[in-house]
């Protein structure tokens, strides 16, 4: 067992409001970890801690410890560009740049200073192949990314992350804009991707968490109420609050 992310006594405040309370969690490498819980429970906030996306929000204060690959990522002096390269994020709505498909994939590499056309070409082929888009799109790499279907756009956004060789993929409701079949295909893709990457997903879709995750955490009012193997969480949760939520009896 190899933990790639560990948090310890993690508290997070938005001004006076405490959004995360004493969260201690381990994310294992090459596993899919799902965070579930009602709206406002702090699951997206926790996800955004892992690559310091909350820094973009004013008045956020974080205490405790968060380690990625053994290195503390809270506090000043952390190289956020390299952290976000290591820990990438996929959002609810696919958000490709209004550029060509090719330029979307290599965007991160260019930011990091890569100019060698051969390296860029290879990255495009490799990343698009990983998300099963290359065969379909190889002849229209110069088309605008916004002309793709939503599912293809989401795959492209994942490919854009893969191009900079991340270790962890954070996914915040990655299928909520997609229809059921597209959702199933993205889920299949996630199961493929976990062989090479570690995935943390926030989802409102409990069946999705049950289907694809290895470990699952239930959050409520900023607390990580229960965390454990997905099979156990969905068949025999230990905490009454988890039971009430996943059986749909939440008042």
């Amino acid at each position: 067992m190899n933990n790639i992310i560990t948090t310890d006594r993690l508290d997070l405040y938005y001004g006076a409001f405490q959004a995360l309370i004493n969260v201690g969690l381990n994310v294992e490498q090459n596993k899919i970890t799902a965070l579930i819980g009602p709206s406002g429970c702090g699951k997206s906030t926790l996800l955004r801690v892992f690559n310091r996306m909350n820094d973009l929000i004013e008045g956020v204060r974080t205490t405790g410890s968060v380690k990625v690959g053994g290195e503390e990522i809270l506090g000043p002096g952390v190289d956020l560009v390299s952290l976000r390269k290591k820990v990438g994020m996929v959002f609810q709505r696919p958000n490709p740049f209004p550029l060509t498909i090719y330029e979307n994939v290599v965007y991160g590499l260019r930011i990091h200073g890569e100019k060698d056309r051969k390296v860029l070409d290879q990255a495009v082929e490799k990343s698009l192949s990983s998300v099963l888009l290359f065969a379909d799109l190889k002849d229209k790499l110069s088309s605008n990314a916004l002309s793709l279907s939503l599912e293809q756009q989401q795959r492209l956004c994942i490919a854009r992350l893969l191009a900079v060789l991340p270790e962890v993929l954070l996914m915040d409701e990655p299928c909520s804009a997609l229809d059921p079949l597209a959702t199933m295909r993205i889920e299949e893709l996630m199961l493929e991707l976990k062989k090479r990457y570690t995935i943390v997903i926030v989802t409102h879709n409990m069946q999705q968490a049950a289907r694809i995750s290895d470990e699952c955490g239930f959050m409520l009012l900023g607390e990580l109420v229960e965390f454990g193997p997905t099979k156990r969480i969905f068949t025999a949760p230990k905490d009454k609050r988890t039971e009430d939520y996943i059986t749909g009896r939440f008042g």
């Binding site: 409990m206 025999a236 039971e243 059986t247």
Partner: peptide, 9 residues
């Protein structure tokens, strides 16, 4: 109904 936990059992 996608029963879970106690309902599933």
């Amino acid at each position: 109904q996608q029963p879970m936990a106690g309902d599933l059992r």
